[in-house]
Amino acid sequence: MRVLVVEDDEGIAQGLRAHLRQHGGVVDLAGSIEAGWAALQAEPFDLVLLDLGLPDGDGSELLQRLRRHGGAGLPDAHTPVLIMTARDQVAARIAALDMGADDYVAKPFDSDELAARMRAVRRRAAGRAQPLLCIGDVEIDIATRRVQRAGEPVELSAREFSVLLALAEVRPRVLSRPQLEALLYAWDGGPDSNTLEVHVHRLRRKLGDTVIRTLRGVGYFVPAEA
């Protein structure tokens, strides 16, 4: 999951980055509304964690801009947004949700609860109620980041799991190499030239050759009938 954290408190932002990376997330940081909007224009994100108290205005301005002006070559207007703020009044929560936020957590929050809420938001965005994805005899538990094949556990690295999940969530759509690399690497940690191919090769060795297919010159996909 590639996450944009829009938060001007450096300590909170870095803490979130460290925690989400432990859970396999790829995290980019922005400290203002304008920096957040520039980031959304530069890269696709699976989810935005948005603080309301930002130095150049109220974070809800970024939320409204995304919902009103996304699409048509701009950021995806349907990108899930989870508000995080010290404003815990009921009116503030209602206002954020009515503006198009997908969920709301009040600071201080438990980091594991935040991670669970993020997973729930992603499931709803994908139209799924369950945290499990099945591809033939391969079962992916998104909540625990565990994979089984024919009932037996399969050990995957964090990035192998991220490649598999990214392709499984959009099956049978093809994801290009740049699209997958954008999901795997933050701006400050670009890949080596053949890293993605190495991850795909290892996944095929562990899960079978039919789970991930290559569309030559285009990218990778998980077939609908896998």
Rank of each mutant, 00 (worst) to 15 (best):
L97E: 13
E160C: 01
R216T: 14
A158M: 08
R17I: 04
L52E: 04
L49A: 09
R67T: 08
E7F: 00
G136T: 07
P44I: 09
V198R: 15
P80T: 07
D188Q: 06
C134Q: 15
G100W: 02
R213W: 00
A126L: 10
G217N: 11
A186P: 02
A96M: 04
Q179L: 08
V105P: 01
A91G: 03
L133Y: 13
T79Q: 05
E139M: 14
P178N: 04
A101T: 10
R213G: 10
E225V: 09
W187L: 07
V81G: 07
R202W: 08
F161I: 00
T195I: 09
G71Q: 09
P172I: 08
E152M: 11
M1I: 10
M84R: 04
G25H: 15
R87G: 06
R117W: 02
H69M: 11
A186L: 01
Q22T: 07
L97S: 06
P108L: 02
G151R: 11
G59Y: 03
A115S: 10
G189K: 00
L207D: 07
L47R: 12
D192C: 07
Y185F: 06
E113D: 14
D137C: 01
R65Y: 02
L97I: 10
L20V: 02
D110L: 07
E139F: 03
A91V: 10
L167I: 03
D110A: 08
I33F: 00
V198W: 15
V211I: 14
E34K: 08
A129R: 14
D76L: 08
I12H: 04
A30S: 08
A168L: 04
S176F: 00
Q14Y: 09
L49H: 13
I94Q: 14
A226M: 03
D110F: 00
F161K: 03
G71S: 09
H201T: 13
T144D: 14
K107L: 08
H23F: 09
E155P: 01
G25W: 11
A120V: 13
V6R: 13
V218A: 14
A30N: 03
L196M: 09
P55E: 13
I142R: 10
E197R: 14
L49P: 08
D88V: 02
L54M: 03
P223M: 00
P75M: 02
H19Y: 15
G189E: 11
H23A: 09
A186Y: 04
G11C: 08
T214R: 15
Y220V: 06
E61D: 11
V81F: 03
G136R: 10
A129T: 11
G136V: 01
H78W: 04
L184Y: 02
D76A: 07
L82S: 04
S162Y: 00
A91W: 05
